[in-house]
Amino acid sequence: MNIINVKNSTLKVPEIALGCMRISDMTQNDLNKLITTSLDNGINFFDHADIYGGGKSEEIFGKTIKELKVKREDIMIQSKAGIRDGFFDFSKEHIINSVDKILKRLNTDYLDCFLLHRPDTLMEPAEVADAFDSLEKSGKVKYFGVSNQNPMQIELLKRYVNQDLLFNQLQLSLKRTGMIDAGLNVNMKVDSSVNHDGYVLDYCRLNNITIQAWSPFQYGFFEGVFLNNQKFPELNSVIDRLAEKYSVTNSAIAVSWILRHPARIQTIIGTTNPKRVEDMSKAADFTLTREEWYELYRSAGNVLP
């Protein structure tokens, strides 16, 4: 597994992380196999959020790590908070209380990373700064970041917080390429030229923020998986040809397309199938050529200017 040296920190994270949103309904035995397979394949970074499974995902994960006798220093745990029932809440009180509950469910003393989960338009950045300072001083959180935030929202936070914002978690896949499209269609009067996110990809690269790509196999917003989907015959034909060339599965090709980008994007896979974890981990073993990357991009329905 290739390692990403996260800028402005001593963190060294694997290119592929395991997303834990769907583990809440797994049996203890099945989750044991999933975590063991992940670790065996160099995936020791685990992404959580307090809303995943209503907190059950964190709880069962904590039990699994204890049962497997995994040393805490051998893994990295990230969690997120800020989404509540029908609204967002970045108040100091909610952030601190959320982290305390997260740590209790995970049965750990600290989080390696804590992210603000989606933007809160009612955010008071000074409150966030106070919360971050308190969490850092207490040793409950080592590093901080955000999710689904645009450059100006991050700039607003950076004016107040004392910590570097190391991560921005954003949706990216072969069929969800908005952060790439506008940069390729500069000075064009086409739909793909519309800038929806403030050139967040370039901004993160310029500001040493590591992007974490979530839902790497989805098209649209949780509309479904594009792999083996009859709606996308050209894309799957190219994926399957490249999978045969590199002797990997189609899911590994989809992940490798993200990893090929020079932004050094960390990809979060959300499978609960140990075999698929093993298959996807092979995406780090090869590098798509420039021609192959663009062929995949075009086959997904994108037109180059």
Results as ranks from 00 to 15, higher is better:
residue 179 M to E: 05
residue 36 T to C: 02
residue 128 V to Y: 03
residue 150 N to R: 15
residue 119 P to R: 15
residue 146 V to G: 07
residue 121 T to R: 15
residue 227 L to A: 01
residue 177 T to D: 04
residue 118 R to K: 11
residue 94 H to R: 13
residue 21 M to E: 01
residue 286 F to I: 01
residue 239 I to R: 00
residue 121 T to P: 12
residue 93 E to S: 13
residue 151 P to K: 05
residue 143 Y to M: 04
residue 250 N to E: 08
residue 275 K to S: 07
residue 226 F to L: 11
residue 251 S to M: 06
residue 270 G to F: 12
residue 63 K to D: 03
residue 40 D to N: 15
residue 20 C to W: 03
residue 241 R to D: 05
residue 148 N to F: 05
residue 204 C to I: 13
residue 228 N to G: 04
residue 293 W to G: 01
residue 188 M to E: 05
residue 100 D to L: 10
residue 266 Q to C: 10
residue 96 I to L: 09
residue 36 T to Q: 11
residue 263 A to I: 13
residue 127 E to L: 12
residue 37 T to S: 04
residue 176 R to T: 13
residue 50 D to A: 08
residue 169 Q to E: 12
residue 18 L to P: 08
residue 238 V to D: 03
residue 247 S to V: 06
residue 116 L to F: 06
residue 58 E to T: 07
residue 105 R to A: 05
residue 37 T to W: 03
residue 250 N to L: 01
residue 95 I to V: 11
residue 268 I to R: 02
residue 265 I to R: 06
residue 215 S to V: 09
residue 35 I to M: 09
residue 132 F to L: 14
residue 58 E to D: 02
residue 137 K to C: 03
residue 188 M to I: 06
residue 286 F to M: 02
residue 300 A to Y: 04
residue 277 V to D: 00
residue 41 N to L: 05
residue 102 I to H: 02
residue 298 R to K: 15
residue 243 A to Q: 01
residue 149 Q to I: 06
residue 151 P to R: 06
residue 186 V to C: 02
residue 134 S to I: 13
residue 271 T to G: 00
residue 113 C to P: 00
residue 1 M to C: 09
residue 69 K to Y: 09
residue 49 A to C: 08
residue 42 G to C: 10
residue 181 D to W: 11
residue 274 P to Q: 04
residue 9 S to T: 15
residue 26 M to K: 05
residue 133 D to Q: 13
residue 184 L to F: 15
residue 244 E to S: 10
residue 175 K to E: 01
residue 239 I to W: 00
residue 115 L to G: 01
residue 62 G to K: 09
residue 11 L to D: 02
residue 25 D to K: 15
residue 210 T to M: 10
residue 260 R to Q: 10
residue 13 V to N: 05
residue 149 Q to H: 12
residue 189 K to H: 12
residue 226 F to Y: 15
residue 283 A to F: 00
residue 283 A to K: 00
residue 100 D to W: 08
residue 297 Y to A: 00
residue 47 D to F: 10
residue 275 K to V: 12
residue 53 G to M: 10
residue 13 V to F: 14
residue 71 K to D: 09
residue 129 A to C: 07
residue 78 Q to H: 11
residue 110 Y to I: 05
residue 228 N to P: 05
residue 129 A to I: 11
residue 125 P to A: 10
residue 211 I to Q: 08
residue 74 D to Q: 12
residue 45 F to A: 01
residue 131 A to K: 07
residue 117 H to A: 04
residue 70 V to R: 11
residue 182 A to C: 08
residue 245 K to R: 12
residue 10 T to D: 03
residue 50 D to Y: 09
residue 272 T to L: 04
